[in-house]
Design a protein around this nucleic acid. Sequence first.
DNA 1: TCCTCTTGCGCC
DNA 2: AAAGGGCGCAAGAGGA
Length: 568
Amino acid sequence: MPPAAPRFALVPDPHGPGGRLQPLDDTGATLGPPVHTPDLAAAVAEQEAAGAPRWVWAAADSAYTPLLPLRLARCHDLRLVEALLLAHESRFGAPRSLGAAWARLNQLPVPPDLGEPGTPAEQDSLFAPDRLQLPPGTDTLRAVVAVHAEQQRRVQAIADPAARARFRLLVAAESAGALVAAEMAYDGLPWRADVHDALLTELLGPRPHIPGTQPARLAELSAELQQALGGRPFNPDSHSQVLRAFADQGVQLGSTRSWELRGVDHPAAALMIRYKELSRIHAAHGWAWQDAWARGGRFRPEYVVGGVVSGRWASRGGGALQIPRILRGAVVADPGWLLVVADAAQLEPRVLAALSRDAGLARTAAAGDLYEALAATAFQGDRDKAKLGLLGAMYGQTSGDIGPLLATLRRRYPAAMGYVESAARTGEDGGVVHSRLGRACPPPSDAWLDLTEAPDSAGEAGGRSARARGRFTRNFVIQASAADWALALLAALRRRLNALPAGSPADRPHLVFFQHDEVVVHTPANLADQVAAAVAEAAEEARLLVFGDTPVRFPLSTAVVDCYADAK
DNA sequence: TCCTCTTGCGCC
DNA sequence: AAAGGGCGCAAGAGGA
């Protein structure tokens, strides 16, 4: 066994249960020679028990997933940290695989990331199962050690000590996210197929015997629609055919969007809206979805840590972050277990209050219901107006009757409004903004120009494009700082959950869902109260770590339930 | 037939 | 006149 060390580089063998370890110090210097072990999981567990080092690996999916259900406390995920550093160094979009980082370090040709344009995905999935993109013959452990040392150097190079400390926190939190994502994919979200099936049957009629056939309720609605629109057959899933069918009845629609149909005075409009609602459930989360994603009592999506530039997670497969509320009844705790569901109330306006240090907004954010307090202070008690105004300010909305609301906010909360307006100006001028912990937004690109269709003149297109980017950077500082807080919460919560007394690893409370500002923990019933307390403590820890001495509070609304649908 | 683009809607 | 941020997914449209 290598000696105890604060960090270990870890590389699994390409085939089989073995792997290599090498002890490192915090700068990334080696503290001993590489050691090969025939049983990597056992060797890792031994070191973990000896002192919970930070495990340094190329990427969690190749290094951590094979070790599960082993739980590790800390890691440094080179691929995720490379992405953070590249963005911070204004080299946004450069490939972030271990191979790419190694190539940059050694002045070699940089391989594109898998899934990026120009990469033959098939070839790589066949010949590089670990997706590391290293040149053939390269010693993976050597590359891990070298790239890690280089990353530590780059973090150390951040000049401002406070910004450097926050970026270190970002590196740790993002890496903790990699642990959580791998564990959640492994454990899965409890999903009762029988309950799901009953919900679908209630909405759509029984499951069709022949796959691909329309369920009864959709077929009925189709027929009723056809009748209501003159009797000629048309496909309600085809926008152009729907537009034509309505036009034939003298109803000119600009689109087939539900909100537009809602204002249409024709009996077919309500049918169309209902058809779209049900057909969406059927297509996106129906029986085919269940067969593909929710087998064996668990829904197992793939989470993509840092999949959104703001630091929010994305997901691949199964629409994990878009589970319709109407189907959440299918998420039911196992017998003897419970779900602890906690979501941060009005996270983004609170983040704005903390970021901008606006004393007035911070006072408002001390209340349980921020919008209610805001309404009482500035909008004669009209909560809807307060919410609309604040969301409009955070998103850069200018339409509707929002002007007076924004004027009120600007007068009452000059620091907060100044903060988002300054972020917007930076974006319009082509600049880069950062989250609280230092996540950088991408620079302007042609994509912003593509937003504009049929411009009257280049100047106008440029103006629209600049304003679009201003809205993006305005929102980025808030959304990304909210993601900073959420990741810190996740890391703190995970640590607390792993410290709870569990009879065996299988009895341990574990995270099963995370959606931007909401977490769900699946826990043995007898530990539910302790889990609920742990969530609250983690939220407070995240507040202190990310925002320091802000008076703003980030309250959670927490529910201990048997079924996800019963939360809030 | 395959592929990319667009549309629309689910979630935050 | 136009005027709200971020995603993933499925289906249709339309070109190669």
